[in-house]
Structures are given as structure tokens and as C-alpha cells.
Design a protein around this nucleic acid. Structure first.
Lengths: 199, 199
DNA sequence: GTCTATAAATTGATAGAC
DNA sequence: GTCTATCAATTTATAGAC
């Protein structure tokens, strides 16, 4: 099915994610969708509402993976490895969404962010408990669970949002080398984290 | 000294860094500086040129720290600890600059990024060699230097650009708890990395 | 539902008085 | 150097024909 509404939302995703809310022109979305500008307003009354739909989509793309991976019922090392594999795969398929989310969410006021995330169902308690349990059991070294969680996510996300910088500084602007770097990244991150926490 | 030009650039930094190039209005910079909008154009002919000055400043704030820390002549563990301490201090003093840089640089075309960074003098060869040497000597475990460098920087930067998200997800939107988390972060990151690479 | 035409508001930039 | 007034272009949004 290729309805107009679908064409609009797909085009809006492309342009908003690449250029941000402020940098996006309704005309460009219309061009990308191959339709008239007025039709955008017919389906989504305002730019703000269209942006809202795109933002919600972008966020909901990444939240479930977080929830499912962190709450799955496997041992801690497998869980960490699974998360890294799945999350980096996901970012690879949508490389511009993380920076888009981080950027737009930093502009929103606090209450919006709170309400939005609360309704997304992200909950890390199960994983937090598991980390503390493994520390008690002596499987892993003592570490603050919140710091470990931030480390895991940060190590997955940062290479993508920093790509233009890293590619030039570390790889002499060679995109092939950078793609190769990203290919190995899953293995490297998992190893780096496991090495750090394993007793 | 409180010249007009200084007031303008200070105001421009504040607004551009918070709202990005596209989200910034010349009027808002003028208001922030307490002067007339026309004066902005008198000193910096266009918005683009004023933005250029701000972007250059923001970047040059973070580049020297990278260069100096990575090229200093100390043992690898001290170097990593020093870098983390200095870099997180620096971000703490300018918490919105990293996301600003990452966001704007992702919009620029590749040749601009290349030329800009090349002229900034960032060079990681000394540090890269040191890592390889320590691996040979058996001081640290085998690890790809580029991955280690990305890990170090990412672990420092990510908690700041992800603050609004992390604060809600991990700290129930309690800002005090998050500030406390950031306070301990230097120690935690250093420990996490050293634990991972030390033999 | 989809288009053309146009309104209404915003905004970067300039001209010109002081 | 600094201001007021204003232009010119852009851009969101709507009205109305088909």
C-alpha cells in the first residue's frame, strides 16, 4: 500500500531526521514525497504536528530494543553481548536517528521529556537488579549499575554520532576504513566491557 | 574591557550553542547582547559569518585539550586518567558545546570537516604508538588503539549529550541525583577503562 | 483528495539619520 | 558606532477551484 499519508510520513522522516526541526522546510518534504505542499497541511495541520509524528516514530524505533534486551531472562554476559549486537545493528540501519533524538530532546522542556519517556515503557530495574546480584555472587567486579548501563549505551552510540569527526581524526577521512571500523565495533565493544567487569 | 564586539560574540555563543544555527534568530542574539540588531550586521556582515566565529571558538575550546593530553609524556595509565579528569572538567564547564559541535559538523559537507580538523592540529599518532608499545611490553591487553581512543572519548562525552534522557530513565528525573552521578563519573570511567585494559 | 494562488507572519539584511 | 525604518525574501498556513 502506497497511500499519500504514508508517502508524507516517509518523506518527513527523511528530511526531519537529516536536517532537524528548525532546518526542515515543508516544501522540501513535499518535494521528497512528490506531492503538493498544501497536502501536508491537509493531512497534518501544522509543521509542529508532523514533526511530532516523526519524533515519536524515531523514539519508538529505539525504545523497544532497549526494553527487550535489558529485561530478557539470560545470564549477564550473554545479555550484554546481545544488546550490543542488536543495538549496533539497529543504529547501522538508522545511523542518523540517535543524534536526531539527542538533539531534539535537549531542546524540549523537562516536563515533555519526562512524560514522553515515562509513556515509552523503558524500565531498567530488572537489569539493575541482575547487575547487583552478579556482584554479590562474585561473577563480576563491583561497579555502579547506572554507570555500567550508561557505558554500554554510550559505547554503542558514540561512534555513529561522532562519525564525521572520528573518520577524519583517526582514519584520515577514509570512509572505507571507517566502515570497516564499525564492522568490528560489535566485537570490540563486547570484549572491552566484558574485560572490564569479569572477575 | 567590555567592547560591543565582545558583547556580541558572547551573546552569539550562548544562543547558537543552545539553539543551533537554524534555530537561532539574529534578534535573539541582539537582545541577549543588549544592542540593536543592525549592529550585528555592522560587526559581522552575515549570520553565517557570525556563526562561523562561534563554531570556530567552540571547536578550539575542545581540540587543544585533546592534543595536549594525548601527546603528553607520561605512562599510559596516568595519561588516560589525566585525560578523563581534564576532559570531563572541561565538558562540565561547557556542557552544551559537545552536542552543538557534533550536530553542526554532521550537517557540513565532508571537505569542510576535513579542512577544519586538519587545521586544528589534532594528532593521535603519539598516543597510538604508545598503546601499541604497551601491548608489546605486556603492560596492557591486546586492543585496537582506534577503538580504545573512541571508547575513552565516548565514555566522557556521552553522559552529557544524553543527560535529559539518562536523567529520566535512570534517575527518575531527579537532577540532584544526576549531578551526583556526574561528580563520580571521572573516577568511574577511569576505573572502567583501566580494568578493561590492564593485564 | 489534490491542486493553484495567495495571505500573513517572520527574518536576514540594508539605507540613512545622528 | 549606534540607532530607526524599511526592504526583500522566505516560509508556514489557508482559501477556494476542480
Amino acid at each position: 500500500m502506497e497511500t499519500t499519508e504514508l508517502k508524507i510520513i516517509e518523506a518527513a522522516k527523511k528530511v526531519f531526521v537529516r536536517k532537524g526541526k528548525d532546518g526542515t522546510r515543508m516544501q522540501e518534504i513535499a518535494d521528497e514525497a512528490g506531492i503538493n505542499k498544501s497536502l501536508l497541511h491537509y493531512y497534518y495541520r501544522t509543521k509542529e504536528k508532523l514533526f511530532g509524528a516523526v519524533f515519536k516514530f524515531a523514539f519508538s524505533k529505539f525504545a523497544p530494543e532497549l526494553v527487550n534486551s535489558f529485561n530478557s531472562d539470560v545470564d549477564i554476559f550473554t545479555k550484554i553481548e546481545n544488546f550490543i549486537n542488536n543495538y549496533i545493528d539497529l543504529i547501522n540501519k538508522n545511523p542518523f536517528i540517535p543524534l536526531f533524538i539527542l538533539n531534539e530532546i535537549n531542546k524540549k522542556d523537562a516536563s515533555f521529556v519526562t512524560n514522553f519517556i515515562k509513556s515509552s515503557g523503558i524500565n531498567v530495574n530488572q537489569f539493575r537488579n541482575q547487575i547487583n546480584l552478579e556482584i554479590e555472587k562474585g561473577t563480576i567486579k563491583k561497579i555502579d549499575p547506572n554507570n555500567l548501563i550508561v557505558n554500554i549505551i554510550g559505547l554503542c552510540v558514540f561512534p555513529f554520532i561522532g562519525k564525521p569527526l572520528i573518520q577524519v581524526i583517526l582514519f584520515d577521512d577514509n570512509e572505507n576504513e571507517y566502515d570497516n571500523f564499525l564492522l568490528n565495533r560489535k566485537k570490540e565493544v563486547a570484549e572491552f566491557i566484558i574485560n572490564s567487569i569479569k572477575k
